[in-house]
Amino acid sequence: MMRRVFVLAVGLVLMAAFSHAAGPPEVEWPGPDRTISVVVPFSAGGGTDLIFRELVDEMNKYTDAEIIVDNIGGAGSATGTNEVLGLPADGYTVLASGAHTVTATLQGLTEGYRELEGIIGLNWDPFIVAVHRDAPWETFEELLAAAAEDPEALSFGNAGMGGATGVLTVGMNLHFDEVFNVTPFDGGADLIANFLGQHVDIGVFSQTEVAEHMGEMRPLMIVHPERSTIPELSDVPTYEEAGYADLNVPFGSYRSLSVRAGTPQDRKEILSDIATQAFESDRFQEYMRRQGLLPEYSRLDGLDAYFAELENLFYPILEAADLLAD
């Protein structure tokens, strides 16, 4: 018995010694031979993935550590988010968070942002409401008038109920007395295919999607107070210009970086500094302009506060769509 206690005690002392050796006195975190992974909770090659790859590429210039992108898609964005929450809060795993994190949390798919802390808020990717070029409606007003005549006759497609486009379509439908038949599709590509085949009347798309398919899409309005910075889309009216200044819905996709709650403050600050330098670089700023992404910078506590604002904005919409967790 004594022997066991002794062995245990020695073990504990050794462990304490080792953990100390690996612990605090670090001047330089993350250290040149470590890898930081940015978990993108969507599959490789998608819109969100491309933006974070661009940012991570730039972030690598401001640290000796290697920063890589890990794609962990599934269940909206919940699978990747839950993976991050399952790993140690040591700053080596960063989540590509954003509006999708808020919706997934409200739906009860993940503890999500309640267990996350902000690193940096990046940008909004405002959505555009469009109809097919062959459709008779030239403005959103005309479209709305046609929809009001026979409620639910016109279908309004999104890329999936749980995602940002789903929230936008449901929110708009609520605002306009539910005149549309909101129909979810299986992701952005599926929505575009069905839209081009005219199986759905109205669609909500990112700006790059609209710019790619300008030949067949007629953009009616951009759901943002400012016009697009993409030249082809610069004459698309904002929702205020279209006459719907009181439309209070999320603008589109919002993107940010977060870490698991409990990550040491100094590490969060280092991460935030690296990301801020990348964000402010000419290259990333130029990239955002080209993609029509609108900067919405915040850091650390500022991002946490912004998430709380987003929750307030999303809650009533998800509640109305019956998407809230029980």
Partner: peptide, 8 residues
């Protein structure tokens, strides 16, 4: 299949 997603 899930690469680096340990839980999944």
């Amino acid at each position: 299949v899930e690469g680096r997603a340990i839980m999944a």
